[in-house]
């Protein structure tokens, strides 16, 4: 039996009728047509399906869509605002934090959640935060650099901003 749910996705209220067994990643990709959350391993291991639920990173292949009824979900499509890229997107571009790009949406979301909690992370903090996300291309080096670059830019921006 289908169930109706209402979710705030990237700031917009969206409703859908779904079977309870539909995984969050399929709700996002197939129903809401947001294909930024990828499916890699489908076994809770690779992290490429990661999205933020109420700001917290979650593997969307391991949560049911009905579980986010009434909650707020952020996908990579929600990072850019008013036609401008998010600082984390600028940073991945600047520091060559991606090659094929398959892991990138998840990496950027995990990084934004980390920086929200800890604006000045050490390299170890960053490596800890992305330890649930596999990348088969970059060797992680430039991903770490991108997050460091972003942290630096965001700190400078907030130091320069009138309080």
């Amino acid at each position: 039996m289908k169930q109706s749910i209402t979710v705030t996705v990237n700031g917009q209220s969206r409703s859908a009728e779904v079977e309870p067994r539909m995984l969050l990643v399929h709700l996002l990709r197939d129903v809401f047509r947001l294909t930024g959350a990828h499916v890699g391993c489908d076994t809770t291991s690779c992290g490429v399906c990661t999205v933020l639920v109420d700001g917290t990173p979650v593997k969307s292949c391991t949560m049911f869509g009905v579980q986010v009824d009434g909650r707020s979900v952020t996908t990579v499509e929600g990072l850019a605002a008013n036609g401008a890229m998010h600082p984390i997107q600028e940073a991945f571009k600047e520091e060559h934090g991606l090659q094929c790009g398959f892991c990138t949406p998840a990496m950027m979301l995990v990084a934004t959640a980390l920086l929200e909690e800890n604006p000045d992370p050490t390299e170890d903090d960053i490596r800890w935060a992305i330890s649930g996300n596999l990348c088969r291309c970059t060797g992680y080096q430039n991903i770490v650099k991108s997050v460091q670059f972003c942290a630096e830019q965001m700190r400078q921006a907030s130091a320069g901003a009138p309080s």
Binding site: T43, T44, C61, T62, M63, F64, V66, Q67
Partner: peptide
């Protein structure tokens, strides 16, 4: 019962578990 789902959902996806009812306690 569904708590964190990090063991139950993988088992359900593999159909090692196929409960008729899921009670989400979150």
């Amino acid at each position: 019962v569904l708590a964190g789902g990090q063991s139950l959902i993988p088992l359900m996806k593999l159909r090692f578990a196929a409960p008729a009812v899921v009670i989400d306690i979150n």
